[in-house]
């Protein structure tokens, strides 16, 4: 098994082998989650600190449960309860947490590059749980896991990502991840929400949703934030939903067995209609389950636990 790097900061530059290694490990973890007693002693005595400088329910809980299923001790720190409110710098807070004995630090931060700042200064492994508009690698890994599980492959698939690409860390990590695994990525959104020169990543861009959906095997819908309207980036929810909302008619343009995904939380009736969000092609809830498995795999690989088999 190839050795993991110390940290997981992003998927840019990650290779197929590295990603498959994580996904294979996640499959073992998912099996553990399916047991009657879904807890193994693999990471007993290890400490995982979740530092969340942004509101988050699913990602934080997912990391916390992943740590607990592996018997690690998990501590959560949010920006409102951290000494950040007393003016302590991120670096100093992290150094303190490292000194307290953390083995893995999971960081969610509103600013791009914050996990890099940590990784460069502290010894514990750093996992990027989303940094500004940069990357959200564990979300992309759970997307990859879900697609691989459902489709049996990733290579050769057409993946459409629709919405606010500019501000989406999920889109960036998905681009790197799906491209590395041999899929083709199409991006779609209003011109004001497509970042400069994004096509140099290898993804294709369009502004008409119909073009993005045509024959797609996977449709990943992104959350649109109302704040972007106030910033003058699009005229309003009504027109946005009309141009970029995923409904049953539009979904019919995609492959018959296309998967519908969303990183959550979903704006029902805006970027995705009720019937599609809850429809047979939607795997939104399975994404959440798989997220725990993927994060268990990463904690295991980065915290250097004992063999998983020994858990039985």
């Amino acid at each position: 098994m190839a050795r993991m790097k110390k940290d997981l900061l992003g998927l840019e530059g990650a290779g197929e082998r590295e990603i498959n290694q994580i996904l294979d490990m996640a499959a073992s973890m998912k099996e553990i989650m399916g047991r009657q007693i879904k807890k193994v002693p693999t990471l007993r005595g290890k400490t995982v600190v979740n530092m969340f400088y942004e509101p988050s329910t699913r990602t934080r809980t997912s990391f916390e449960l992943a740590a607990k299923y592996l018997s690690a001790d998990a501590v959560n720190i949010s920006s409102s309860t951290s000494s950040a409110v007393k003016g302590e710098s991120l670096k100093d807070t992290a150094a303190t947490i490292a000194a307290l004995g953390a083995d893995v630090v999971v960081l969610r931060h509103p600013m791009a590059g914050a996990p890099h700042l940590l990784a460069g200064t502290i010894k514990p492994a750093v996992i990027n749980a989303g940094d500004g508009a940069h990357e959200h690698p564990t979300q992309a890994l759970l997307d990859l896991f879900t697609v691989r599980e459902k489709k049996g492959r990733i290579s050769g698939l057409q993946v459409a990502i629709v919405g606010d690409i500019t501000h989406s860390r999920v889109a960036r990590s998905d681009i790197w991840g799906f491209t590395a695994m041999g899929a083709s990525v199409r991006l779609c959104g209003p011109a004001t929400l497509i970042p400069a020169e994004i096509e140099r990543t290898g993804a294709r861009c369009c502004t008409r949703m119909e073009d993005a959906l045509e024959g797609a095997d996977v449709v990943i819908m992104l959350r649109i934030q109302l704040e972007r309207q106030r910033q003058g980036l699009f005229p309003g929810i009504r027109e946005y939903g009309r141009l970029y909302g995923l409904n049953r008619e539009r979904l019919a343009l995609a492959a018959r067995d296309a998967l519908v995904m969303h990183p959550g939380p979903v704006n029902r009736g805006v970027e995705i209609s009720h019937d599609v969000a809850d429809g047979v092609q939607s795997v939104i809830n399975e994404q959440v389950t798989n997220g725990v498995a993927v994060r268990m795999a990463l904690l295991y690989l980065l915290a250097g636990g004992g063999a998983v088999e020994a858990a039985d």
């Binding site: 791009a112 590059g113 500004g132 940069h134 970042p195 400069a196 140099r200």
Partner: peptide, 15 residues
């Protein structure tokens, strides 16, 4: 600077 590097890094660009 606004451009590919800013896009990759997720930092806001100045055109």
């Amino acid at each position: 600077n606004e451009g590919y590097t800013a896009t990759r890094l997720g930092l806001k660009g100045i055109p």
